[in-house]
Design a protein around this nucleic acid. Structure first.
Lengths: 187, 187
DNA sequence: CGGAAAGTTGAGACTAATCAAACCTAGTGG
DNA sequence: CCACTAGGTTTGATTAGTCTCAACTTTCCG
């Protein structure tokens, strides 16, 4: 029922769902005109692809060296046919994902500073602990997640650094210096 | 298990879900700063509020004179405990809603013309038939659904009328004159 | 080292928001 | 039946925020 894979690329989720063991994965959809919208960043412990019969054309892709568990969706669904508890958990999983996407939608009607602030707080929440966050993704990924351009992402991070809300020891490492300032932006 | 109500106002969905019999309903969330995001417009036959344990603070509100069925969520969930078919349908419902929200999210990263065009095609698809669409909602509702301002909604509709893509006999009535032009905008 | 890729910064263009005024349209009361 | 009003809508002028295009800087790796 489960298989594993390392550093996989461009997995279309039609056959299987994925569970991230280590590393990081992005899920995304591509519009006709080439624009890419990243739906989620998956960190170790996260799963994706079991939620819907049709996860609506989403694909998944490793960002960094990752260990991934690929799960045959058909097997899980067959299991749910006979086990009410599995069925209930699938529903819960889908409902949770729905809530996450609804929140992400609210993010997209806010301005650049608010989006970045929310993103940083979100990542910090999921990271081990403390105020230092290691971002596994590129600026382009952040941009596609937040509906912005790389330039705006970069500029906004620089602004937050000037305001002493964060520090950027390296481009992939962010230190939250003033969480309440960030929270104020997190409407 | 079900009750009915006419012209209801401001229903918070925590206790019950709703099914629209006639009229129209909007579902929405309000941000801390007062901005409102409309999640969906419900037309006769549509349901809402059974999807998630927590539909994440959404409320529902009638737009026009409506007949609404209010459903006790707890009753449905109790039913699903014992009936696998009901459970499966709840899951399907949630999955479908997830797909809808994902599409709505993609809408929000597009420009005003594209958002309006997509919205009009979406409404036309759900309306009885033909090229004439009666919008049950105000410009403010459309704006809050699309993440725009009323002025931009109004201006964009006027532009589409100038381009002969649509006609606006009255502000609430839209005639699709050139669907392919609208579809071209619907990336 | 040296080159390529990723990230940052700058200047200008462009889209949508904001602020403000004018314009319907549907009710209301004279 | 006709002004009058109130709400929603449209239009206009200006501003603010983000994108685009371009140059420059840093980091990563051979």
């Amino acid at each position: 029922m489960a298989d594993h894979d390392t550093g996989f690329h461009d997995h279309d989720l039609s056959a299987g769902a994925v569970a991230v063991v280590s590393g990081a994965v992005r899920t995304y959809r591509v519009l006709n005109d080439g624009r890419r919208q990243i739906g989620a960043f998956l960190l170790p412990g996260d799963m994706f692809g079991l939620e819907a019969g049709a996860t609506h054309g989403s694909s998944a892709e490793a960002i960094a060296d990752s260990v991934i568990l690929v799960i045959k969706r058909s097997a899980v669904i067959a299991l749910a046919e006979h086990d009410a508890e599995v069925a209930r958990q699938l529903w819960t999983l889908t409902a949770r994902e729905l809530g996450r996407v609804q929140n992400h939608m609210l993010l997209l009607i806010r301005n650049a500073q608010e989006r970045i602030a929310t993103f940083l707080l979100e990542m910090a929440e999921r990271a081990p602990a403390g105020d230092a966050v290691d971002l596994p993704m590129s600026r382009q990924d952040i941009a596609d997640y937040l509906g912005l351009t790389i330039e705006t992402v970069s500029r906004t991070l620089s602004q937050l650094e000037e305001n002493a809300a964060i520090a950027l020891p390296t481009s992939r490492r962010v230190v939250l210096r003033n969480r309440s300032a960030l929270s104020r932006l997190n409407a």
